[in-house]
Amino acid sequence: MKRTLLELNVNGELQQAPTRPTATLLDVLRDGLHLTGSKRGCDQGVCGACTVLVDGRPARACLMLAVDCQGRRVTTIEGLNESGEAAAVQQALAENGAIQCGYCTPGIVVALVDLARAGGGASENDVRRSISGNICRCSGYVKIVEAAVSLLGGKASDGR
């Protein structure tokens, strides 16, 4: 299949990868750039394991065409690892027993970093809404939510 050289701004660096025109951002991140922290779980935007930031907003890497991401800022879990918000989220998850198989975890970290960056504290419902598109099959979400509320919380649960 025809390939073109694509230039993407990933984690603050311009990176080049030979790419099919129909490749998704997730294809390029994983197979082209070997940034494997973003996981492939469904390719339909349902599971959330591939969540990254595009221009600072949470995005499904499997639903973004790589070619359409040119000129945008892409931040993956690998790039977020440098940030203070991520470190705090990661520590909270690890210490609260919120990690099991870990396959959904990078996507959840990205979603929670987005919530943390919004500022202003987060209720349990805010946390649940922020990860509502990240399927975790192991934990039942309780410890993930507790971890995030312990970090960002304040307000009590405000229902749904």
């Binding site: 922290g37 690998e78 690892n81 989220v89 690890a94 210490e95 027993g97 870990g102 990078p106």
Partner: peptide, 12 residues
Amino acid sequence: PRLDAGDKVGGR
């Protein structure tokens, strides 16, 4: 915490 928690939260 899990032994591999650090690797998992960091996507490593």
